[in-house]
Amino acid sequence: MTKPVLLDIADGIATITLNLPESRNPISAQETVDALVDALDSMNRDLDVRVAILTGAGSAFCSGGDLKSIGQPGGLGGGDPVRTPAQYAHNIQRVPMMFQTLEVPVIAAVNGPAIGAGCDLACMADIRIAARSAIFAESFVKVGLIPGDGGAWLLPRIVGYSKACEMAFTGDRMDAQEALACGLVSKVVEDDELMPAALALAKRIAVNSGDAVRMSKRLLMRGRELRLAEVLELSGAMQALAHTTVEHKDIVAGLVARQQSKLTPSS
């Protein structure tokens, strides 16, 4: 049986791949959600992991929900309306909640269409790089639905309220260049350069202190919700911990030693 999600870890970099290319990597099935949440949790608990790349197998990043099963018995929205909120909470809504707990930075390497919940999944990552063939759409209204996976919270924080409204109300598709222009992605590369570009960025992150990177992400995540005074207080507490880490002390010692060697005249 094909694993719906693959996890590979090497040299402090985790690669998480949605692995249902024949159906364009939908994420609404319970087994896929479970596998994705488990992969994210596993790499987050591995303190040797410093950064992660999220991508899709085949020609699509993620097609969102599987329309064949949505609304059917056993599928999302396929039962008693009173139970639908619980269905969502135990299914796809576990994904954004898991992302909120991650201390490891995540780079979304968007290798093709990211549609509906797939667009929102890309938004759950910290950094997004798009292949030139990537397509984005907050397309729930096109099938008479609303973003049930946190898109209404995620999208305005990335592209701004007005652009988020345009995307959500029209459901229109945007190409990679428009996504770059509105800040949905930070970089667009040729299709065959996507994973090398994502890996190069991951390596630039992974060379830094793992403790500092994790704390920096935690601080940035909390900073979206806190007042400045609260962020400053939290920053002070985290900095107190950072000063005690072995990596910090070793880095500072190395920098001081290099500075002293430059100042010492040669005999």
Rank of each mutant, 00 (worst) to 15 (best):
G58H: 00
A168K: 07
G144C: 09
S63G: 12
A197R: 06
Q93M: 04
A117N: 15
S69G: 01
E22R: 02
G223E: 07
C165W: 13
T55D: 04
I13D: 09
R218V: 03
E247S: 11
T2Y: 05
L145R: 10
I251Y: 15
G150K: 01
A10P: 10
N91R: 03
I27Y: 10
T15I: 05
S63T: 14
G183Q: 10
I135F: 12
I129D: 13
V141E: 02
R218Y: 10
R214L: 05
L20E: 14
H243P: 04
C165A: 15
L67V: 10
A179K: 02
Q239I: 13
R204K: 12
A229M: 13
L40P: 05
G79Q: 00
L241H: 15
E233I: 00
N19S: 14
T245D: 08
A10R: 15
L40Q: 01
V49R: 01
R214H: 06
E178D: 07
L226H: 09
A29E: 11
Y88T: 08
L184F: 13
G78F: 01
Q260E: 15
D126M: 06
V189W: 04
L228V: 15
P26T: 09
H243T: 12
A57S: 07
N208D: 10
T170R: 05
T101M: 03
E247R: 01
A198E: 05
T15A: 04
A114R: 02
S63C: 13
G78L: 02
A86Q: 11
R128Y: 00
R224C: 09
A86W: 08
M98L: 00
P196S: 08
M97L: 14
E190H: 00
M221Y: 10
G112A: 10
A131F: 04
L36Q: 00
S235R: 15
I13L: 07
G65E: 11
M124H: 09
F99Q: 05
S216Y: 00
